[in-house]
Simulated assay, not measured.
Amino acid sequence: MRKLSVTLASILLALAALALTPYADTAHAVLPGAIAVAALLLLLSIVADRPKAEPGRVASEPLRPAALAPAPSRNQSDAEVVNFLAILQEKGRLVDFLMGDITGYSDAEVGAAGRVLHEGAKAALLEHFGILPMREESEGSKITVPTGYAPDEYRLVGRISGEAPFTGTLIHHGWKVDWVKLPRLAGASSDRLPAIAPAEVELQ
């Protein structure tokens, strides 16, 4: 699952980079949604990738009555993911963008909202993930795919025959994650998940 998280983070960064390049008006409505979907899939993969508790060891002597240690909150992992979602909401209004009805807005208006989402989500990603290119060569260069390469590090297209090493043209340099620094929550409530964003109330 960690490879899936890395792949989704790479896709998210690729979409963010694509959003900075000139594109057709129709893409204004497509890219923000694609970025948002990739961000949510990344969050789900992080939940699935959380380490599970190790099974207890078999006791070498008969069990004796003892006080039960408090079990960790079953919502701890979920709360940490919600906390990261709250960061994306705070930085780029991700949840507002996804949960709002955009059918009544023009492509230009959706594109403007997508730019805010892009800038905020990118800042959050760079703060919590060390993202680097998979290959340092410029796109269009001739490169060699080494023997024993990891399947998630290269996508081979065209006529494929034989075994690695392969030589071909670099179409996209790819992305990888060097480190992850997700926020940790201490003492998450066992009966509810934290809020993504508080309700704002103006008092009269």
Results as ranks from 00 to 15, higher is better:
Glu109Arg: 14
Gly114Met: 02
Pro22Met: 00
Leu4Cys: 03
Ile87Val: 10
Arg192Leu: 09
Leu44Asn: 03
Val30Met: 05
Met99Leu: 15
Pro55Glu: 06
Pro51Cys: 07
Leu15Glu: 14
Val145Tyr: 04
Ser60Asn: 03
Lys142Val: 14
Gly56Ile: 09
Ala24Val: 03
Met1Asn: 12
Ser106Pro: 07
Ala29Trp: 09
His173Cys: 10
Gln204Trp: 14
Asp78Pro: 02
Leu94Ala: 11
Pro146Met: 03
Leu18Pro: 04
Gly114Cys: 07
Gly56Tyr: 04
Phe129Trp: 13
Glu139Thr: 11
Tyr154Ile: 08
Ser141Asp: 12
Pro133Cys: 12
Ala69His: 05
Lys142Leu: 15
Arg155Glu: 14
Glu136Ala: 12
Lys91Ile: 10
Leu31Phe: 15
Tyr154Glu: 06
Leu117Phe: 01
Ala124Arg: 05
Asp78His: 11
Pro146Glu: 07
Pro70Ala: 15
Gly130Arg: 04
Ala27Met: 10
Leu94Phe: 05
Glu80Thr: 00
Val180Thr: 05
Thr103Asn: 10
Ala27Tyr: 05
Ala66Lys: 09
Gly174Val: 14
Ala53Thr: 09
Leu85Trp: 05
Val180Pro: 00
Pro133Trp: 13
Phe166Cys: 08
Pro194Asn: 01
Leu126Met: 15
Arg135Leu: 06
Lys142Phe: 10
Ala188Thr: 05
Ile87Tyr: 04
Asn83Asp: 13
Ile131Tyr: 03
Val95Lys: 03
Ala186Leu: 15
Ser5Pro: 04
Arg74Pro: 06
Asp107Ala: 09
Arg135Cys: 05
Met1Glu: 08
Ile102Pro: 09
Gly187Ile: 05
Arg155Ser: 13
Leu40Val: 14
Ile11Trp: 04
Val157Trp: 07
Gly187Pro: 00
Pro55Asn: 06
His172Arg: 10
Val177His: 10
Ala150Leu: 08
Gly56Asn: 10
Gly140Arg: 01
Lys91Pro: 06
Leu20Ala: 06
Trp179Pro: 02
Arg93Ala: 05
Thr7Glu: 15
Ala71Leu: 06
Pro151Ile: 09
Glu109Met: 13
Ser45His: 06
Thr144His: 01
Gly140Thr: 05
His118Lys: 02
Pro65Tyr: 15
Ile46Asn: 12
Val157Ile: 10
Thr26Gly: 04
Pro22Ala: 00
Pro72Leu: 02
Asn83Phe: 12
Gln76Met: 02
Glu200Asp: 10
Ile35Cys: 11
Lys122Phe: 12
Phe97His: 10
Pro198Ser: 07
Arg64Ser: 15
Ala39Asp: 01
Ala67Leu: 11
Glu80Ile: 00
Ala48Asn: 08
Pro62Asn: 08
Ala112Pro: 08
Glu200Ser: 12
Asp152Gln: 09
Leu15Tyr: 13
Tyr149Thr: 00
Leu13Lys: 05
Ile46Ala: 15
Glu153Cys: 02
Glu202Leu: 15
Pro70Lys: 12
Leu12His: 04
Lys3Thr: 10
Ser45Tyr: 07
